[in-house]
Design a protein around this nucleic acid. Sequence first.
DNA 1: GCGCTCTACTAGCGCGCTCTAGTGCGAGTA
DNA 2: TACTCGCACTAGAGCGCGCTAGTAGAGCGC
Lengths: 333, 333
Amino acid sequence: MADVAEKAGVSRALVSIIFRDLPGAGRETRERVLRVADEIGYRPDNAARLLARGRSRTLGVMFTVHQTFHTDLIAGIYPEAERLGYDVLLSGTTPGRGEAKAVEALLGHRCEGLILLAPDAEPGYLDQLGHRAATVSVARRAPGAQVDLVHSAEGKGVRQAMDHLVELGHRRIVHIDGGRGPGSAERRRAYRAAMRRHGLADHVRVIPGAHTEESGIEAGRLLLAERDRGLPLPTAVLAGNDRCALGLLMPLTRAGVEVPRDMSVVGYDDSHLSHLMPIGLTTVRQDAVLMAEHAVRFAVDRLENPELAPREAVLDPKLVVRGTSGPAPQEPA
Amino acid sequence: MADVAEKAGVSRALVSIIFRDLPGAGRETRERVLRVADEIGYRPDNAARLLARGRSRTLGVMFTVHQTFHTDLIAGIYPEAERLGYDVLLSGTTPGRGEAKAVEALLGHRCEGLILLAPDAEPGYLDQLGHRAATVSVARRAPGAQVDLVHSAEGKGVRQAMDHLVELGHRRIVHIDGGRGPGSAERRRAYRAAMRRHGLADHVRVIPGAHTEESGIEAGRLLLAERDRGLPLPTAVLAGNDRCALGLLMPLTRAGVEVPRDMSVVGYDDSHLSHLMPIGLTTVRQDAVLMAEHAVRFAVDRLENPELAPREAVLDPKLVVRGTSGPAPQEPA
DNA sequence: GCGCTCTACTAGCGCGCTCTAGTGCGAGTA
DNA sequence: TACTCGCACTAGAGCGCGCTAGTAGAGCGC
């Protein structure tokens, strides 16, 4: 920077002004300085900039590398952050790299805001983070913690899905849950409530699962094994999320169970996977872009006003009926 | 830091030494300083640290948010980088966020090394990057550019797959290519060569595609439409990658084409998708972990010795036979 | 002529740390 | 005793910027 200043015959301060695009430099000088900088190959150094300015205007996003819905969210985070003048840094969790590590990496690179996609951490830890940076938890509640929350109204989504299935005549509706995955508890609860409400309390059945394809495959195998022992298949399955639904479809289709003729399957998320099947997956859409925008705005708002009380955005999910749900098959008399 | 120094009754320099875990501080003092720091809630500031040290020991990884194989690579990059004492920062490309932006974000955060997963940029641009940071391109050639290269021997992989199929009796083997995707050109070429080598030049057929599920679905529809017009289905398909293979399977299965009885399908990548199907996808494994490790080491080596000539790691892919490939169906006489 | 404002520009401190070149001191050696 | 050595520790100069307070000079009204 000093070199540029000297070569352009101005002070360092003016170079700084020009590179920050502030008023206070003549048209001509501005051009000359920029030209010289380009010649020298000068680029402002971010670390020094941060240090001097005290602010980084950077948001850190923690996500799970293999979670498709997260990538949808990320795609929504970038443009909104850019619009508000913030940088975005990503840090992933993998089977061998826990959340704490991922978060420390972000904090270590001076992220002022933290957007945690479906964190698995306990509220106490989140609260701690909330005091170190403007923290937003997506899809995971953190009661009492100093963090903002963005999630969808799981109850509403499940209710819509269940109403849809019941309307189609289904009675033996099974739920593969998402284990300790975010939103799973709520979805499970809403499933049970819906079954009761529709007078199907006797048919309530929750198969423990997770938000992975594997869990769907396993559940499918379980159901098929039961069928082979003479038990009836459920006529409909409400999966914990799309990945689980997709996994479930694999063994079913393989075994000749036709969807939706023999069984209806409903997913959750409307991740980009849902479009993949030629007939399309009936699913509950969580608007990833909208969630992402809320998360970014929460973080930014809090950065501009740290005193803000924790806020919560509850987005309405919406049932998207595609090809994997249809009328219940005739019950054998 | 000054506060800690004062409260512990030592100089700032000593605090610095202690926090960097260097020799030169007494056992007792060390403990006292750490205790005081903990009380005050002091954490070393990374920006200042970078600034003062002149090095960041940070690698930036550019990846495509929706590309499953990239997430496999990332999972391999983290541990290797940590082992070598480097931090990792991720920046994703999305449909609305080009590679240049993603890379600038990384550079802006002082990444000294750049690992580009399947960059789509021209060699000229890569060369430019190569001069700004230790750059490694994964899966994409960049002739003449100052970057290291990690890729797999596409030819060998395709040859193995083709040999496997031909051995199973297949003759009408179609290739859905990966468009301008990384490695596609090589795979296409190797497919053609293999067909010729097996005396199947007349059956060569490349369906233009991409490394996405959508392209697989489209190709599947195309083939089915042809069948409906009376043309024979190919007995085997070599897909551009796993995602494409998976997409292809959807319409086929739906249409009653049983895999592998009626048609064999071979993917490429062995991304974690491949295990998803109950019968498993026959695919060509590119060892993601190994590729990741090479990439990290290349970057680190170059950082420690910037004069290094561009290097290239060519990894041998390996055919993994799972359930989607089987003997060719009897040709109608 | 004076005071005023406005634009274009500069001096120099400070951000929080690292690092080089020391100082002081007790133990070991000749 | 005089010396070297090694250890624990310190002083202080940067790292590359941003920012506040300021100056010089031009233009303007009275």
